[in-house]
C-alpha cells in the first residue's frame, strides 16, 4: 500500500496500510508515544478505496486485512482513523489465539487487575478512563487478554475510544487523538494512555476483581456466582470456542479465583464509589 505504519500494543503488532496519507498520519500521531516496532507484525490491516474512483471522489474506506467481516460497511475518509481502529479490533477478535479474549476494560493497581466486562454502552471505556485518571494503570479498554498458562491479564493498552458525553467529561485530562464527528457511534475521540501504562505494556497483572457494569440504573451491587459469571464470560469472549480446552481451563480458573459482582450505576461518580467499595 502507498502509506503504512506498524504499531505494537502489548503482545500484538499490526501493520496498517492505506491508500491515503491522512489515516496513517493520524495513527502515527495516536501511537507516537508507543515504542517503535521493527519486527514481523502479527496482523496486517488495509484501508483501501471501496471502488477505484473512491480514492478521490467522495473517498470511502473499505476495511481489509488478515481477518475481515463481509458485512463491514465502508466509512468516509474523515473516519479513516476509526476504520483503522475497528480493523485492528477485528484482527484481535477473530485472529488472536495466545490469550483468552474477553470484551472488557481492565485497569491495575498494586499489581492487581480490575476487569470491567460488559456490552457496548455499559460504560467500560468511560469507567476505565476515569479510573486511569485517578491513578490506575490502564491495561486496556477493549479486550482483557487472559494468559492460559498463568491466568494473568496481559496489557493491551490501546488509546481509549470515548464517545459523545464521555469526551467532554474527560477533556481536560491527558493527550487526545483527533475528534471524529458524526460517526455511526456518534462523536469519537481517543484518549492516549499515560506514559507509565505504555511503558508497562508488557507487564501482566493478577486478576483480583471482575465487575459487570450496567449504566443508566439506580445504584446497586450484587455478587455474581460461578455459573452466571461463566455464562456471561463465554458470551463476552470472542475466542472461547476457538481455544477449545485451553479456553475452558482458563475461564474456569478465572471464575474460581476471582470475585465477581454486577453493578448498576446512574453516573460515573456513583460507579467509582461502588468500585472502590468492592475493591477493598
Amino acid at each position: 500500500m502507498r502509506h503504512s505504519v506498524t504499531v505494537r500494543v502489548g503482545p500484538a503488532a499490526f501493520r496498517v496500510g492505506a491508500d491515503w496519507r491522512s489515516p496513517i498520519e493520524q495513527l502515527r500521531d495516536l501511537y507516537r508515544d508507543y515504542p517503535a516496532f521493527g519486527g514481523v507484525p502479527d496482523f496486517t490491516v488495509s484501508l483501501s478505496a471501496a471502488r477505484p474512483w473512491r480514492r478521490w471522489i467522495r473517498p470511502s474506506v473499505a476495511i481489509g486485512g488478515d481477518f475481515t467481516l463481509p458485512e463491514a460497511a465502508p466509512l468516509p475518509l474523515a473516519h479513516g482513523l476509526l476504520a483503522a481502529e475497528m480493523a485492528m479490533n477485528l484482527q484481535m477478535a477473530l485472529g488472536w489465539r495466545r490469550h483468552l479474549l474477553l470484551h472488557a476494560a481492565t485497569v491495575e493497581r498494586d499489581g492487581r487487575a480490575l476487569i470491567l466486562c460488559g456490552e457496548s454502552g455499559a460504560g467500560k471505556s468511560t469507567l476505565a478512563a476515569m479510573l486511569h485518571r485517578t491513578g490506575w494503570r490502564l491495561l486496556g479498554d477493549e479486550f482483557a487478554l487472559i494468559d492460559p498458562a498463568t491466568g494473568d491479564v496481559h496489557p493491551f493498552p490501546r488509546p481509549i475510544s470515548l464517545k459523545n458525553s464521555s469526551v467532554a467529561l474527560l477533556r481536560d485530562h491527558g493527550r487526545w487523538g483527533s475528534l471524529l464527528t458524526g460517526t455511526p457511534k456518534g462523536d469519537i475521540r481517543h484518549l492516549i494512555p499515560d506514559p507509565a501504562s505504555i511503558a508497562a505494556m508488557t507487564r501482566p497483572a493478577v486478576p483480583a476483581l471482575l465487575l459487570f457494569p450496567r449504566f443508566g440504573f439506580d445504584a446497586a451491587a450484587r455478587e455474581v456466582g460461578g455459573s452466571e459469571g461463566f455464562v456471561r464470560l463465554t458470551t463476552a469472549s470472542t475466542n472461547y470456542t476457538g481455544l477449545g480446552e485451553a479456553g475452558f481451563r482458563t475461564l474456569t480458573r478465572l471464575v474460581h479465583h476471582v470475585p465477581m459482582a454486577a453493578i448498576d450505576y446512574p453516573d460515573t461518580d456513583v460507579a467509582l464509589t461502588l468500585i472502590e467499595e468492592l475493591w477493598r
Binding site: G225, G226, S227, G229, F230, V231, T234, T241, G244, E245, F248, R249, T252, V255, H256
Partner: peptide
C-alpha cells in the same frame, strides 16, 4: 471430559467435540 463445579451448575468440556455443556 473436563469438569468444573461452578455452583449451581457443573461445566463439562467434551474433548472429542470441543463443546462446553452446563
Amino acid at each position: 471430559l473436563l469438569q468444573a463445579s461452578l455452583d449451581p451448575f457443573t461445566a463439562v468440556f467434551h474433548r472429542p467435540s470441543g463443546q462446553t455443556h452446563l
